[in-house]
Amino acid sequence: MEALIEEIKQHLIDALNLEDMTTADIDADAPLFGDGLGLDSIDALEIILLVERNYGIKIDNTAATRPVFKSVRSLAEYVAKNRK
């Protein structure tokens, strides 16, 4: 799980242009949206794409899947459970 968390952090930095950030700067349990990393709705769409492209998992952007986007850890847990 920790390796997957590191990997997802790096994908986020690359896909979202988190300039000057390293994986060590991202707290796996901090909220992705709002206060934490300060991501927005466009970033959410980019995260959906990166999960689809890297792990072959399609996530619908609905209320039911919202908890998946809570933090890097919740995202990694979802990927671990659903990856093909």
Binding site: L16, I42, D43, L45, L49, R53
Partner: peptide, 10 residues
Amino acid sequence: LEGASPAVFV
């Protein structure tokens, strides 16, 4: 490349 990126398209 990999297809449309919302962050570029916007």
